[in-house]
């Protein structure tokens, strides 16, 4: 089972078959609108635009399990993301990323350790998981790691599909 074998709901209630990202790298990030880390949206949008032509997408996953910092309705979340940060990358429905109702996507993602060898629960909003074009999780970056930090950019470059 890989990440791209799974399905999630989109923010507007439709189905998002992650198989559509097969052959592309993706950075899956649990997001929130009222977090001190929310300005990371700006850099996430930049890396989405920068690498999208080379086979990459950011996928945002709204989650309200951290400090109730994503309390809004789907419409409110969508309006915030487009209005404040001009987000164009896909957003899923609000999901649980930890605990008894953890979505299967995050069961797959959280089994991957970070650079310190720690797997398990997502720590806070804006934790980042890098998925290879074959749907394997190849990187995990904790919330305080900026989306445009050298370690994230280097990992994305390495995960992009081969050209030609």
């Amino acid at each position: 089972m890989g990440v791209y074998d799974l399905q999630v709901q989109t923010l507007d209630g439709g189905a998002l078959d992650l198989a559509q990202f097969s052959g592309r790298a993706a950075l899956v990030v649990n997001v929130a609108s009222r977090c001190g880390l929310t300005p990371q949206y700006e850099a996430l949008q930049r890396i989405h635009e920068r690498f999208e032509p080379r086979g990459f997408s950011v996928i945002g996953v709204p989650c309200n399990q951290f400090g109730e910092q994503e309390p809004g309705s789907p419409e409110e979340i969508a309006a915030f993301c487009s209005g404040e940060y001009a987000v164009t990358f896909p957003l899923t429905a609000k999901l649980d990323v930890n605990g008894p109702n953890r979505h299967p996507l995050y069961q797959e993602l959280t089994s991957t350790p970070d650079a310190d060898g720690r797997s398990g629960d997502v720590q806070w909003n804006f934790e980042k998981f890098l998925v290879s074009p074959r749907g394997r999780v190849v990187g995990r970056f904790r919330p305080a790691t900026e989306p445009e930090s050298p370690e994230v950019l280097t990992a994305i470059e390495a995960a992009l599909p081969a050209t030609g």
Binding site: Q65, F66, G67, G99, P100, R102, W124, R142
Partner: peptide
């Protein structure tokens, strides 16, 4: 020392019914 920030603590409820964190 949550998220590497001195003096920040995170309270976690991690039970069979619920998972929620508050810093």
């Amino acid at each position: 020392d949550f998220l590497g920030v001195d003096n920040l603590v995170c309270f976690v409820e991690d039970t069979q019914q619920c998972w929620f964190a508050h810093a």
